[in-house]
């Protein structure tokens, strides 16, 4: 699986908003069918980085290639399932309306649309709430619906910004199981998280702090290299805080 060309390559990305440098010299590779986690505290630049990977945002310098195509490219967006950090839902509409709207944007037609809506709502365990208006949803339910929308068009690449915030541990576990199943079917997943124990479930991790990529490796290797007993300790090690 490692011989295949990487799904994402980012080379020396730099991004600044005005005089504030948000990302500095970031280079990373995401391989096919893995779950790549971006771990870092809030404000570290994770969201900006994933937005750059989708092409919504453009880097000041450096290059990003996704699925062999240089970003940004409009046609690439149909290959990506994106879940933003804020729940981008139309709260005055029902979940079904929201799903149908986004399904249509991705060109899903009648039967396939109905079928996919049923499938993704099962994955996130919301099938009973399909007809409910989104403004009656709890925070966790909205998060799950956002995830369902990202999965709708069966994209080969999923980019998920903090997908499990506010979701209870039982459901979080089942969502992780589903993400792993997607990996096995060949879907590549990039996700951001600031929860250390969740990071361990990723195939590989990028540790990011103050706009710089501190380390990029499998969780096991990161632990070994730093002699740390937890991902949190490893993060502190790379962050320059030696215990």
């Amino acid at each position: 699986m490692n011989q295949e060309a990487p799904v994402i390559t980012a080379a020396h990305i730099r991004k600044a908003f005005g005089s504030k440098v948000v990302l500095e010299d970031i280079s990373l590779e995401v391989r096919k069918a893995e779950t790549f986690g971006l771990l870092g505290p809030s404000g570290s630049g994770k969201t900006t980085l994933v937005r750059l990977l989708t092409g919504i945002e453009e880097a000041d310098s450096g290059e990003v290639h996704v699925l062999g195509v240089k970003v940004p490219r409009l046609s690439l967006l149909s290959q990506i399932g994106y879940m933003a950090q804020s729940d981008a839902l139309y709260s005055e509409l029902s979940a079904k309306d929201n799903l149908e709207f986004f399904a249509s944007l991705y060109g899903l037609r009648k039967e396939r649309r109905t079928k996919r809506i049923r499938e993704v709502m099962e994955i996130v365990d919301l099938q009973e709430h399909l007809l409910k208006k989104v403004n009656q949803y709890s925070g966790g339910m909205k998060r799950r619906l956002s995830l369902a929308i990202a999965l709708l068009h069966e994209p080969p690449l999923l980019i998920l910004d903090e997908p499990t915030v506010g979701i209870d541990p039982v459901l979080r576990k089942s969502i992780w199981k589903e993400l792993k199943a997607l990996n096995e079917r060949g879907t590549t997943i990039v996700l951001t998280t600031h929860v250390m124990d969740e990071a361990e479930k990723c195939d590989r991790l990028g540790m990011i702090r103050e706009g710089r990529l501190l380390a990029e490796d499998t969780p096991a290797n990161l632990l070994q290299a730093t002699g740390a007993s937890s991902i949190e300790e490893a993060f502190l090690y790379y962050g320059g805080v030696h215990s």
Binding site: T54, I56, L74, S75, L77, S78, I80, Y82, A84, S86, A88, F102, L105, Y106
Partner: peptide, 8 residues
């Protein structure tokens, strides 16, 4: 932002 993450 979500709309702009689609091919729209």
């Amino acid at each position: 932002e979500r709309l702009l993450a689609t091919p729209l």
